[in-house]
Structure formats: structure tokens, C-alpha cells
């Protein structure tokens, strides 16, 4: 069984946010509009976050793309009262939209702010409606439930089906999330962290590798390679 993980090389990332856009098109996240976005209600499963340090004129800013960290020890699944969110056998943290009661305990438990809530019924401008991903697995979520990055788990299913149709065994390289596929600077790597020969597990062992809020013991499966 694979243990899916991601590595993001911050040296290669130039914060173009194409990952964010690719994610939106793949996963059908709604359009919040400027007013709602300013209230912290934009749903962006993958977000490029600005970390500002110091004060003018001594300011530095780091831009860090942040998908769900898919923690091995996820604080969000622990608190779910109905097991609507859980970690599957391959380490991906999923949500059952049909069961989520919208209590938002997971959203306050996640220290990475990766979990988003549907404050209203999701909406799209007419022009975008025609371009929704038809995959039923990413059908628009109803109002009142929590959603977040799934490492494009629908692509994993499709990759398995594709391999089967071609009559060959499924390999880890068959499966690529949309953000990784689209990354302009090729800064993202994806694969099986349990396979010692995979690119991700080798990069994760690099001296440049770090994880967000590592001291919290959440053991994220998203690694970053330090800038500079």
C-alpha cells in the first residue's frame, strides 16, 4: 500500500499560483467573489500563502504554496464526531460530504487552515458553469459542509482504472494531482513516501527538507525544500 506524499521545492516556486487555479478547475471549488473573499470565505484547496516577517523597511516575505498537509497524525480527524473525515489506507485525509454535520470542529482543530466551509450554496458565473469537471466524485458540495484538498483522489481512481484497462499493473507514477501536473516551475513532486527509491522519499530525506509546524507532531506528508 502506498503512502502518498508531496514535496514542494521553494527554490523553484515563483508563486505564479497556477497550482491554485488548476486545483479549482479540477475540484470544482466555487467562486466566492471579492466581498466574500475579504471575509475569509474563499474556498481554495491549494493556496499560496504570504508570510511577512519584520516591519518596513526591514521586511522579508516568503510565499509558500499550501495544499492539505495530509498529516499522518491528523488533528482534524481526531475531533470529528461522526467520522465524516478520516484518513484512508493510503494516508489521504478524505471527507464524506453526505455525513458531515457542519460543526466545524475539524476546521478549528487544523493548525494549517486547510479546511474550508461552505457558508452559502456554491455558485459560479454562467461562463464558468460550462467548464465544471463532470467527474461525480468532485460534484459541487452542498452548503453547510466542510471540504478540502484530497490530493485529487479522483485521479488516483482513474489512474487505477486506466492501468487495468491497459492490462498492466498500476504504478505510483500513474497518479499525479492537478497542481503537480500544472506547476509552471516544476517545483512539485508527488509519489509514494514508503518507496525508498521514489523521488519524493529521496527529496524528503534531503537536508533542505522541512515541514510546516513540525513541532506540533502532526507529521505532515507534504515536505518543503528550503529556499536559498
Amino acid at each position: 500500500m502506498a503512502r502518498w506524499g508531496m514535496v514542494i521545492d521553494l527554490d523553484k516556486c515563483f508563486a505564479c499560483q497556477s497550482c491554485t487555479l488548476a486545483c479549482r478547475m479540477e475540484n470544482n471549488t466555487p467562486v466566492a467573489g471579492p466581498d466574500q473573499a475579504s471575509r475569509g470565505r474563499a474556498i481554495l484547496w491549494n493556496e499560496v500563502l504570504p508570510f511577512v516577517e519584520g516591519e518596513y523597511p526591514e521586511v522579508t516575505m516568503a510565499l509558500i504554496p499550501r495544499p492539505c498537509q495530509h498529516c499522518d497524525n491528523p488533528p482534524c480527524t481526531k475531533v470529528c464526531p461522526v467520522k465524516a473525515t478520516y484518513k484512508d489506507e493510503e494516508g489521504i485525509v478524505c471527507i464524506d460530504y453526505g455525513r458531515c454535520i457542519g460543526c466545524r470542529f475539524c476546521t478549528v482543530a487544523c493548525p494549517y487552515q486547510v479546511r474550508y466551509f461552505n457558508w452559502y450554496r456554491p455558485e459560479w458565473p454562467e461562463a464558468l458553469k460550462e467548464h465544471l469537471n463532470p467527474d461525480p466524485e468532485v460534484a459541487p458540495r452542498p452548503k453547510g459542509v466542510v471540504e478540502k484538498c484530497t490530493f485529487c483522489i479522483q485521479r488516483l481512481r482513474k489512474a487505477r482504472e486506466g492501468a487495468e484497462a491497459e492490462g498492466r499493473p498500476f504504478t505510483a507514477t500513474d497518479y499525479t494531482p492537478a497542481c503537480v501536473q500544472t506547476c509552471t516551475g516544476r517545483a512539485r513532486y508527488f509519489g509514494d513516501l514508503d518507496d525508498p527509491n521514489s523521488l519524493v522519499s529521496q527529496l524528503a530525506a534531503s537536508p533542505r527538507a522541512f515541514r510546516l509546524l513540525e513541532e506540533m507532531g502532526t507529521q505532515p506528508k507534504v515536505y518543503y525544500l528550503k529556499q536559498g
Binding site: 470529528c80 461522526v82 458531515c100 453547510g144
Partner: peptide, 15 residues
Amino acid sequence: MGRPERVLYPLIWGR
């Protein structure tokens, strides 16, 4: 609750 009609779910799927 975001889904008030699911108020009894913790008594069905309670974890």
C-alpha cells in the same frame, strides 16, 4: 451546525 437536519447523526455515526 452547518447541516442542522443532520443533528442526530452523532447518535447514529457517533465516534
